[in-house]
Design a binder for these strands. Structure first.
Lengths: 194, 194
DNA sequence: TTTTTATTAGAATATAAATTCTAATACCAG
DNA sequence: CTGGTATTAGAATTTATATTCTAATAAAAA
């Protein structure tokens, strides 16, 4: 079976995520990542075909982790009060998965998934975007039926506001729990409740 | 006086800002910028000493433009209602200065002003940060006196929430005016008003 | 008109980082 | 024990791009 690997592909992505979160995707060079992972540069290419692919995996694995949680939560939202509670997944995720949150929140997707990235990765990213828009659209249909800008307002409330609040503290710190009440209140207000 | 320049330093920074906003700072190469500005690569170095300096100028000129507006507005805030109105400078700025807003909002400062950037630029960036924190602190002292987390809540309300709301639409689009009411309502709520 | 000089223009060079390559290594199956 | 094989290890190569350099140019001043 050959010589055993020092790290798994998941370990590699985790190490690369940490580097990208700390230094930014542009500075996440193969040299920096291999040093952080504790393996020689050549070994990286036994796990992923290229740096572009690795950068894409960093973003996609973080995004898929967040989105699975978000969509499941949003699907259950029937009232503005439930929406206010659901919006708190964003600060909670940032506390539990700091590096992922920094990757998603303090950087642009386009810097991880370039215009010339392999089609496979672009497709996964597009699917995530579509799924999120659908999920938001369904919440909007339930909470603000008939409002022509209901989708935009719901996106601002469920995504924009909590993300913005969290971003005041990222990437250095973790958002303090005290801001959760402010986020919930802001979401209620943005959706027109009380 | 020598051969006249095709573009001024401000023109160069404006062109570079557009490239950085569209492609990200990492992809804002000298070649890409010179092409966008319509001048040969060598001419760039008659305007700025290095690419690092140009990237720093892009961020600083955008940040200084926004911050002058923000601090002047915040200085007049005495009530939560005035704070809600003041928070709307962010979506308005994004509509009027789209590329600047994308630079500031969809990218990290650290990617424009690297750890090894010339001290002059780092100092300007540090000063901006200090001034903004001071400004927020003074608003917090007026709006939420005695609240131990008043500064964090004010930052979330005046910066985080409007920035997050705007970011739902950037970098492709411009935030629609319809969201301004939602932002104002969210800011009031985050500050504990009504 | 001639001289001066900042700029254009883009080729040449330097530098940094991604990728590939060769050899050595360590485990497993037989 | 031995052969097969995936991995380590890191050097060599390639590629991309920042920077420098040389010559030509265009306007203003003398």
């Amino acid at each position: 079976m050959g010589r055993p690997a020092q790290i798994s592909q998941d370990d590699l992505i985790a190490a690369a995520t940490l580097v990208a979160a700390r230094l930014g995707p542009a500075a996440a060079s193969i040299a920096a990542i291999s040093k952080a992972a504790g393996v020689p540069t050549g070994s990286i290419y036994h796990r992923v075909p290229s740096r572009d692919a690795l950068l894409a995996e960093i973003w996609l694995s973080a995004a898929e982790r967040f989105q699975a949680l978000a969509l499941e939560t949003f699907a259950a939202v029937r009232t503005i009060e439930e929406a206010a509670e659901a919006a708190l997944i964003t600060p909670r995720f940032a506390r539990e998965h700091h590096a992922d949150a920094v990757v998603l929140n303090s950087h642009r997707r386009e810097e991880f998934i370039r215009a010339d990235a392999p089609e496979e990765y672009r497709a996964r990213a597009v699917r995530l975007g579509t799924e999120m828009r659908d999920g938001i659209g369904q919440v909007a249909a339930r909470l603000l039926p008939g409002d022509p800008k209901g989708k935009e307002k719901t996106a601002v409330a469920l995504i924009g506001i909590p993300l913005g609040a969290v971003r005041v503290f990222l990437p250095q710190a973790v958002p303090p729990v005290e801001i959760d009440a402010a986020i919930a209140a802001a979401v209620r207000a943005a959706l027109g409740g009380t």
